[in-house]
Amino acid sequence: MNTESNETRAKKFGMVIDLDKCTGCGSCMVACSAENNIPVRKDESDKLLSITWIRVYRITNGKDFPDTEICYFPRPCQHCGGKHDDGHSPCVSVCPATATDYDHSTGIVSQIYTRCFGCRYCMAACPYHARYFNWWDPVWPAKLEESLSPDVSPRMRGVVEKCSFCFHRYQLARDKAYQEERDVEEMEYQTACTQACPSGAITFGDLNNPDHAVYTLKKDKRAFRLLERLHTNPKVYYLSEREWVRRAGDNYLSNEEPTGAPGAYELKGKGGH
């Protein structure tokens, strides 16, 4: 694992998803699939085998008709920073092949597909089910191979894959910035899901940069992160006005009281360990 910083001012790319705006339309999933050469199967209804780097889950408040409510939870890789935000992410810390590591210069959990030998330890370690295993070689029927993007290397049977925060888009934006001898602007590096989202529920940027929208949004009263109590320190924040949604984000039991502190929706007193 590499612990040095690449650049003087480290970036920390992250995402804020407004669940009150999300309509569960699935654009993010499709945009992601097209952007990242995600393989397709004839039967995509078996969700154990279907690969979707960002998956939109659906939850309900459990109340009976007509007080029922639903909420959609888009779940990309959370790009966990680990307990002290030192790169000790659940998946990175268990990979025996160093096929996945934590990029201290961007905060992105990166990976090398060809280096993975398919032990799936990272999948077991990931509390967010963000990692997917290629049980078969991807097959692109008819001329579908023609639609593959050269920006992301197609994976092979036997390796684990997951959301990369469209890192190749950062690389492309940087190429352009180098050419024009300037820095990458906030809107130049946006993930495919962010770009596609019709309701504008997803905001993406550098969580360390006060000029970026996510910097302010992550401190919103409505902000919380998934399974905060595990101290995985995810870089994906969620926003919701709805108390039951925020509770669901950390699997609160009905008798538990969340503190409601912005960005750290933790339990009073007892920690999660």
Partner: peptide, 21 residues
């Protein structure tokens, strides 16, 4: 549509090259 698109529209490349053609 100000830069956004639904999933069906986004997946048109798969219809273009797909086995249904």
């Amino acid at each position: 549509n100000t830069g956004d698109l639904c999933g069906v529209g986004l997946s048109a490349a798969q219809l273009l090259y797909g086995p249904s053609r």
